[in-house]
Nucleic acid binder design. Sequence first.
DNA 1: ATGAAATGTTGTGTTTACACAACGAATCGT
DNA 2: ACGATTCGTTGTGTAAACACAACATTTCAT
Lengths: 83, 83
Amino acid sequence: MTHDIHNRIALFRAEHAMSRRDLAEAVSVNPQTIGYLERGDYKPSLELGMKLARVFAVPVELLFSFDPFPPMADALRAAGERP
Amino acid sequence: MTHDIHNRIALFRAEHAMSRRDLAEAVSVNPQTIGYLERGDYKPSLELGMKLARVFAVPVELLFSFDPFPPMADALRAAGERP
DNA sequence: ATGAAATGTTGTGTTTACACAACGAATCGT
DNA sequence: ACGATTCGTTGTGTAAACACAACATTTCAT
């Protein structure tokens, strides 16, 4: 059917040094829910998706995508970082 | 206590001259579902929200918002249209 | 004026995103 | 070593997002 939704929640959570509990509180959900989302066990509501994007101050499309995200290193290089 | 989500689905659908059936087919849902969304009877999944934004070629945040959308005339004026 | 298309509404049923609890394993600071 | 935090997993329950059907009403083209 329709491809599932990929996300970078774990990535951004790591960069912001937040625990699942921290993030859960920031978006008012149960901590387990963050775990389910990160390992793709279920897909968030639009409301939760937008709240998560707001926490990380990124557009929704940078946090969620229908296509799998390319490796971070690609984006870093494309952003101008050189070896 | 969570603020509901506002959307501009009807607006964009009008601009694109699509019927609910048209839009429903474009995002693979039942036509009634579009109606429910437009009148705020229920809130879409992230997947459906992103599909709708993709149909109109706009970022999710332009189609959905936690705060009510300002009147269109405001945006038109701010965009440079003069009386 | 007639009919078709678009819309609004109501109802029933299924699936799933959540809440919440409980537990084991891994990691970390002290 | 120890406890505290984090993470992973499993299970149960509920609310709501959907599908689908049926029908009334409005709008619109001819």
